[in-house]
Design a binder for these strands. Structure first.
Lengths: 208, 208
DNA sequence: GTCTATACTTCGATAGAC
DNA sequence: GTCTATCGAAGTATAGAC
């Protein structure tokens, strides 16, 4: 059925199965026995590859952070893009948001992050810093630049950043926590549409 | 220290201690032994009052639902209030949101709901229906009425409902999941302020 | 209603043979 | 690197004496 799977190193198999199960049931609800069973080895063999269960989660988070840091826009790129006008910039913002969830693997890890954000200190701190605060700062700068270029009204740029970005967090929460069982493709299309409408609304309110 | 506590029936003590611990650590992370220890009885005695651990959670959720249904505005009240102008109505909306978290007990249960919304099917369905969908519908009707009364621009009322209300969900998530350790009073004040700013921004964008 | 005692299960993790 | 075997800890829940 999936002969690619047979050749994978055991460590990688453990990783993949863990992502799958953690995203589905949550970290605590998955036992080392269950992971081992699905990989096709005995539970004790897990410990030849990972120090303990927590270490598997850490490996997943390291992978996640690394993948996320690949994407994103440099400050210079952003500056240049703002010149093109706010409409294009928002379109791109939505696209970037979507692109960070662009593989089945990453989708599952996003889900895992969502449902373990409270229960795990490291995930929560990561979420606060990298998913909330850092993007808010970037958007604040962006709005500041737009104001300086007299593209939009001179409102508080931090307020604008929250007005724009909190909606993305809401959509994120709505899907990954409340509606995860729905079809992913459908969600992506809907999200893109909702985010576009939101940007359109916001822009109409602040454009000069 | 708290002599009121000594007289309380054991069932009530179990309830209170469970709320406290579940909100602090999450349902799964709390053992029946731990609840019993804190109440001052043996673990087996718990089962004289509640069928099992799950039944304690169900009792807490029943209490929560009942408390929430006490608040809220009747449709008639709302109609009358809209007449006073959108500013006053938004102010009231924010106050209602805050008032549903107005006791330490309710605050803890809100927290519990937040962190268990994924892990527990019943809580998730409750959240989806009562905390998200129902209020969105109410706000959609409210905006529809405002449009009919020519108080605001004739935009899509459902879009407006999401523009307004998703921010409340975001604030909710931000506090109860990401920032729970902060002082409650401070949070309440900050939230009220943020929600007011948001309403002000939205209103400026849609007022006729 | 609470106690002691205990049954039963599942968990994460380790030791040592192959 | 995988296996068998096993440990200790912790969990929910029940039975029966008081």
């Amino acid at each position: 059925m999936n002969n690619q799977n047979q050749k994978k190193p055991t460590k990688e198999k453990i990783f993949d199965v863990s992502v799958e199960l953690f995203a589905q049931k949550g970290f605590n609800a998955v036992s080392v026995r269950e992971i081992a069973r699905k990989v096709g080895i005995r539970e004790s063999s897990i410990y030849n590859h990972y120090k303990n269960k927590e270490a598997i989660l850490e490996a997943i988070m390291d992978y996640f952070k690394n993948e996320l840091s690949q994407g994103g826009l440099s400050v210079n790129d952003a500056e240049a893009l703002i010149e093109q006008g706010p409409e294009i910039f928002f379109e791109l913002g939505a696209k970037m948001y979507i692109e960070q969830i662009n593989t089945p693997q990453m989708e599952k890890i996003w889900r895992l992050v969502s449902i373990e954000t409270y229960h795990n200190d490291k995930i929560r701190e990561f979420f606060k810093k990298e998913i909330l605060e850092e993007p808010i700062n970037v958007w604040e700068n962006t709005f500041q630049t737009m104001i300086e270029k007299k593209m939009i009204k001179p409102l508080n740029p931090r307020t604008l950043a929250y007005e724009y970005y909190s909606f993305a967090i809401f959509l994120f929460f709505e899907y990954f926590v409340l509606e995860y069982d729905k079809d992913f493709k459908t969600y992506m299309d809907l999200t893109q549409e909702k985010m576009a409408k939101h940007a359109e609304f916001l822009l109409a309110a602040i454009k000069m």
